[in-house]
Design a protein around this nucleic acid. Structure first.
Lengths: 88, 88
DNA sequence: TCTGATTTGTCCGTATGTATG
DNA sequence: TCATACATACGGACAAATCAG
């Protein structure tokens, strides 16, 4: 993935490929590429689509898991988490 | 690397280890140790070969990058830049 | 049941980037 | 300048579980 210093979403830390990929996946979920409960792209697919190392892809997914956006099932894949609706 | 006040190549500023190393690398490129487009020695190797701190080696490489003699690819290494021939 | 393909889990080695004292 | 530590990233290898046939 091309390093994009003009990426729209900013973070606390430096803009890095794994953070950018995490944002991209989040955006794709929001856009409806994958519905709630559905499996997202495999690590292998993400590696091929974005030209990143698998370790980097895994780090991006780890961010999403940490944020509660997705969850991973060993040997199965990562799925879009069902998030509670915001009442605010 | 031993500080050498009698180094042949002179500079605008004071003679320092990182400037001397930059000169050495330049000379090695000119000599053909590394061809155009090829990766030069890693920072680690240069540290071991010349007995310098890594930060000093990095400063030397930064000089070469600044001069357009080499370019660095994150997580990959530094490469000999393809320089346009001088017609003057 | 067996087999092979798929997919995530883990570990290793290499290399540069950044920060601190 | 030096020494050290940690972060980031790439690439490879192998293990383990799952699933389709």
């Amino acid at each position: 993935m091309t390093f994009d210093p003009d990426a729209e979403i900013q973070h606390d830390g430096p803009i890095t490929p794994y953070r950018q990929l995490a944002d991209i996946i989040r955006a794709r979920i929001a856009r409806g590429d994958w519905a709630s409960g559905q499996r997202i792209a495999t690590e292998k697919d993400l590696v091929q689509e974005y030209g990143l190392a698998r370790s980097t892809v895994r780090r991006a997914i780890a961010v999403l898991v940490d944020d509660g956006d997705v969850y991973t099932v060993p040997q199965r894949g990562s799925y879009v988490a069902e998030k509670p609706e915001s009442d605010s």
